[in-house]
């Protein structure tokens, strides 16, 4: 097709878009989001995170005010300061979202997670599991001659430590709720 000009002679261009930005420090933030408990609201929130490439480390949701049909979603996410600001702005503009609070920015919030741990074993391992559970203040919620189920509530660090110790004592199954969080002090959302 001779009617077309010769190729451009300048320096080569790589693509239609600008380059990715340089890496910046990543921080972990816990967000509390109050939403209308309507069908699809969780999909909307989760879809926003996947669609815009944000991370979700933990997500918990439950209706907290039944008469008003309001749910509270606690999201633990990671990102650069800029990304965290965008996440909050993007969440805020969703129609069913009433409020977004950054508990990490507002001061150290109470963060708790509940884990259920099933340990199977006999003899010394079983005794050790029991002893460690007591040391952590875990409750024994089920027991058979060869197994225990422990319930522990604590910070993510505590529950992580507990799970890793239990791994050495015959841990076979773990269920975790994800993090629920609330700001300290008299002020409420």
């Amino acid at each position: 097709m001779q009617h077309v000009q010769p190729p451009f002679a300048g320096p080569p261009m790589k693509s239609h878009y600008s380059d990715a930005p340089a890496a910046e420090p990543i921080a972990r933030h816990t967000l509390a989001v109050i939403v209308d408990n309507e069908p699809g609201v969780l999909a909307r929130i989760a879809g926003l995170f996947s669609g815009r490439g944000y991370n979700i480390e933990s997500l918990t949701v439950s209706e907290t005010e039944h008469e008003k049909h309001l749910s509270r979603i606690t999201i633990v996410t990671t990102g650069t300061a800029h990304v965290i600001e965008q996440i909050k702005a993007q969440l805020s503009r969703l129609v069913p979202v009433h409020r977004v609070d950054d508990l990490t920015v507002n001061g150290d919030a109470i963060e708790r997670e509940l884990v259920l741990v099933k340990v199977v074993g006999k003899g010394e391992a079983r005794v050790e599991a029991m002893r460690l559970a007591q040391a952590f203040g875990a409750r024994t919620v089920d027991a058979t001659l060869s197994s225990f189920i422990f319930e522990l509530t604590g910070t993510s660090d505590e529950t992580e430590r507990f799970i890793s110790l239990m791994t050495a004592c015959g841990l076979t199954e773990v269920a975790r709720t994800g993090i629920a969080a609330i700001g300290r002090g008299a002020e409420s959302m």
């Binding site: 009617h3 077309v4 000009q5 300048g10 261009m13 790589k14 693509s15 239609h16 600008s18 380059d19």
Partner: peptide
């Protein structure tokens, strides 16, 4: 058929690097 659309900021370039 051969006309190109100018001016143009090539991708990944700044405003003062127009063609």
């Amino acid at each position: 058929k051969a006309e190109n659309c100018f001016p143009m900021i090539p991708s990944g370039k700044a405003h003062n690097e127009m063609i």
